[in-house]
Write a protein that binds this DNA or RNA. Structure first.
Lengths: 343, 343
DNA sequence: ATCGGTTGAGCAAACGTTTAACCAGATTGA
DNA sequence: TCAATCTGGTTAAACGTTTGCTCAACCGAT
């Protein structure tokens, strides 16, 4: 544990004052080129690394942001975090990770800790667009953006484009000639589920079709998909059965495919399937592989981070909710083998 | 963006010197009880929150650690990160998250950034126990622990107990009367796969049995499990076929179960299955639900963090590799409905 | 010769804490 | 009674930076 090398050491090695050393390293101030390179070489050769705490103290910037989520590092926060920390790293900013685990006391303490650590900004992420964490009054002054979360009035938020993606999914099914397109999805109290239904209906209406049946709400599980396969594919008269299903997530899609396969129904021959989420491990393992909607969560995290930095830098950022462009990922469950398109 | 309230403000409000204010708040030094409460109440009422950067500067502690991983926030790092940050939060320590994405340049820059941010310690996490990140010479002085990673000589590491868990899995199958226990697992160049084979062999040997066939290496995928179901359950003479399979991970197990079911083989009636990883979303969705080994990754992260703090505090911590206790999670794929046991 | 401007660099004051050293007054022990 | 000890606090230095201000030296133009 040898003593840390400070800017004093650099100054001594280069035979200049600390002020000059600081300016040389940061590229600020006026100074002879010769001096600048001499200082920089000295710094390099003695392995100088600036102490961000000291710098932060005087600059009132910590080059640090906090990601606080109440998704216990789940499937959604994950790609968001990856995109965020990637973009931040490129800008020399580090990311604190904190999960509040839906515990209000923990939540409060987390925000306080972030304030104490002097984060420059906060990304608040959730797993549902219709719920949100509320910042305690005391930390209201920290620049904040919201991701996959309810977005308070006047705040800045980044959410997936559920409506658009659902519409595109349905349009894809229409484009391959399907006309009786059912929709199986999660619980109705999820806004995401309602938005996806909206997109599905809009696409059908635009095509002059009506929904073959109301959207089928349930749980976000394979079991739900499986059960609905039994129901949709056995009860109605064969020519009334759907020839395509847009599923609210990939698990439901997988359950449906497994159930349909068990019943001897051909996928995509008899019924074409589009999923939602592009959860690779699921989508790639179904038989056939699942065509599904990718919500661009990685880019969502990235954009949120970049906007946050803009705010921190004092640039004006328009308040309001942004919707992330989605992407359809074509695999085998709709029969076509086109490559991916973008919205 | 109103000016931050500092300890000076607290001191002024309580009519004491900043030194006394500091001591009152931190509970150090001698002082009249009356004074202490007066200061604390003042701090509370004006919403004082200490500036950790300033504190860190003088104490040479940042109350911050770094988690650097080359698993892009995958399935393994995830629970480790959760356990770690949970334990750290309880101790008032924040966690920087950084992924190096198997990019050496990024890796170097990440370690440098950690040093600049003055982290008190580093948790280096990987997704394979046989590979590791190597710290650049320059940051060698930061206390470090390794998780799910190769562990350099003299360092401190925390890995799952692959051998023990595999043995326990096999013993469970033996305990329910199975004798022809096959093992389907991932690529042989994964140390984890080799350790699990070792545990499987050890359990069989202890029971006086021999393996019905060599361990079947392949990929960590459902497809591999599916394919091996076709192979194991159709080729050999029926009474030579396995009556149980210990799978190297839950995906393989799921693929096997699906494949076996397709062939009309009963699970667990004809063949009992134990998986590995306890990846809930998979294990709970198979039919029947999967009995599997939980490697205790959450606790792994927690223990690693606590040990790291011990080192930071100057306590002596024995170098070497620790193995995390595992846990068998009983679901339906072995037929019994006992509750979980611990090793 | 003197003056205004530029160039290159140093001095010292911050930033918000902690903490070693010090000190006045009260209490104690012999 | 007097020195020693304890009590409850204060003063000031330090941590490693950045940065506003000052200043000497030099230059070309009056």
């Amino acid at each position: 544990m040898t003593a840390r090398v400070t800017i004093r050491d650099v100054a001594a090695a280069a035979e200049v004052s600390v002020a000059t050393a600081s300016r040389a390293i940061n590229g600020t101030g006026r100074m002879a080129d010769e001096t600048r390179v001499r200082v920089r070489e000295a710094a390099l050769s003695i392995g100088y690394r600036p102490n961000m705490m000291a710098r932060g103290l005087v600059q009132k910037r910590s080059f640090t942001i906090g990601l606080v989520t109440n998704d216990t590092y789940g499937r959604f926060t994950l790609p968001v975090a990856a995109g965020l920390s990637q973009a931040m790293h490129d800008r020399g900013v580090s990311v604190f990770l904190a999960s509040t685990q839906d515990n209000p006391a923990l939540e409060l303490r987390t925000f306080e800790a972030m304030e104490e650590k002097c984060v420059d900004g906060l990304v608040v992420a959730n797993r549902r667009v219709d719920r949100g964490l509320t910042l305690p009054e005391t930390v209201k002054s920290i620049p904040t953006v919201y991701v996959m979360s309810a977005c308070p009035d006047g705040a800045i938020g980044f959410n997936p484009d559920d409506v658009g993606a659902a519409r595109a999914a349905t349009e894809h099914l229409l484009s391959i000639g399907r006309t009786r397109i059912a929709h199986i999805t999660g619980p109705k109290d999820f806004a995401a589920a309602r938005y996806r239904e909206e997109g599905w209906r809009a696409a059908l209406a635009e095509a002059g079709l009506s929904a073959p049946a109301p959207a089928i709400y349930g749980t976000w599980s394979e079991a739900h998909g499986w059960d609905m396969a039994q129901q949709l594919l056995t009860t109605a008269a064969p020519d009334k059965r759907p020839d395509a299903v847009f599923c609210g997530n990939d698990q439901i899609a997988r359950g449906f495919i497994d159930g349909a396969t068990r019943l001897g129904v051909g996928i995509p021959g008899d019924v074409a399937i589009v999923g939602f989420d592009n959860w690779e491990i699921f989508a790639a393992a179904t038989r056939p592989p699942l065509t599904t909607m990718d919500m661009g969560l990685l880019d969502l995290g990235r954009s949120a981070g970049l906007s946050l930095l803009d705010i921190v830098d004092g640039k004006r950022v328009e308040p309001g909710l942004r919707h992330q462009p989605y992407r359809i990922v074509i695999r085998g469950s709709c029969g076509t083998a086109k490559t991916a398109g973008t919205a």
